[in-house]
Design a protein around this nucleic acid. Structure first.
Lengths: 208, 208
DNA sequence: GATAATAATTGAACGTCGTTCATATTATCT
DNA sequence: AGATAATATGAACGACGTTCAATTATTATC
């Protein structure tokens, strides 16, 4: 059969791909994006330096793959937070879960935002989709808070609220040196969500 | 005089420092943090490669210096927005000014957050101070909105609101490809501030 | 003004990085 | 078995930040 060889080849290549992603995932989780080196990666995977580039175009592609896994874990963490939380506290639960994820997986979480593709290379669609899926987690809580709102407006609102929470977490974790002790950061986040929820309630009662 | 030589030496060194900061500032403004290269810098400044390291410990120190200038410009932009804005709209004016600054000076603004010191090196105090001064710009508007509040609480609130606005701007400008058209981003920001202001009003009337 | 002592400047060289590609190796087909 | 094609390899390349022996300029001493 003329494609057995091809099949075997692609299978082995797929195995190598997975192995490299696994190792890169652990490296980034332990030492951050800057800790990922092609040579170390090859050594850890037991393959040649050049072999990396038979599995991926470049390290950027590999990093995107790792980031996609991080996004998936983050999604699961947010979903778990939504399960045991009644509708009124869902937004707070999500914000807490986001902060907790960023804290417990800080290097991986940072990699989501630190990594930049070279000028001009567009973000792959599958990655953009994975990113946008995050915002959807806010849609259900928002729908119960604002029953009448248009779907588009709600989606934009979800993005806005997510971004706001992200901003507080990102700047709060920025510099650990004598800056924003853990409890204060959690309190800041709680304040933010409380204010936003109050604002939403006010608007929804005013303009039904 | 035994210190004339020293004085002349330090003066020339200071001149070189300023020249290098100027050039780095323009380079970052035009091509971003990644566009700053030691060799290009030396060529543009008309000095030897090694001369850079007689003026600065390393490029990180130079970048911090450039970022300090960016922070100063940002401060001035926020102050200008506060001048022609009555108290009730001050928060919105600040948010708009922040978005506008990020838009018109995007590479410089990005450099503020992209740049990271190597593991273990603490942020210099003078830089941390410059950063924290930013949050103070929110204090006056907040004081007029919440006359009774404790100063510490107000400062924390300023930080929180600033971070939230930053989050919306940062994620909104992240990927220009088919993502958040300019007008929508401005609208998102306006929504955020409106919701937060409404939440603040509600709290202040409830708990005086 | 000549000469020794000292400070400042230089750019070749070092180590590290991501990436490539001629070569060696292995697998497949006749 | 030998010819042929796919695959794997790691030395080599170019770019990077940084260093430091060697050179040049400056100051001090006579």
């Amino acid at each position: 059969m003329s494609d057995t060889r091809t099949e075997a080849g692609t299978e082995r290549r797929a195995q190598l791909r997975d192995r490299l992603i696994d190792i890169a995932e652990h490296t980034i989780a332990a030492h951050g994006l800057a800790g990922l080196k092609a040579r170390d990666l090859a050594t850890a995977a037991g393959c040649a330096l050049g072999a990396i580039y038979t599995a991926f175009d470049d390290l950027d592609e590999l990093i995107l793959r790792v980031n996609a896994r991080t996004l998936a874990r983050l999604e699961r963490a947010l979903d778990a937070a939504l399960i045991d939380a009644d509708a009124t506290q869902a937004l707070e639960a999500l914000a807490r879960a986001y902060l907790n994820f960023a804290r417990t997986e800080e290097p991986s979480w940072r990699a989501l935002f630190e990594h930049r593709l070279p000028r001009g290379t567009p973000v792959p669609q599958w990655y953009a989709d994975a990113r946008n899926r995050l915002f959807n987690r806010l849609d259900a809580p928002l729908a119960s808070l604002l029953p009448g709102k248009d779907e588009m407006i709600r989606a934009a609102l979800a993005r806005t609220l997510f971004s706001a929470v992200h901003g507080v977490v990102a700047l709060g974790l920025e510099e650990k040196i004598a800056d924003t002790p853990p409890a204060l950061l959690a309190a800041q986040l709680e304040t933010l969500v409380r204010l936003l929820a109050a604002g939403l309630m006010m608007e929804s009662t005013r303009l039904p």
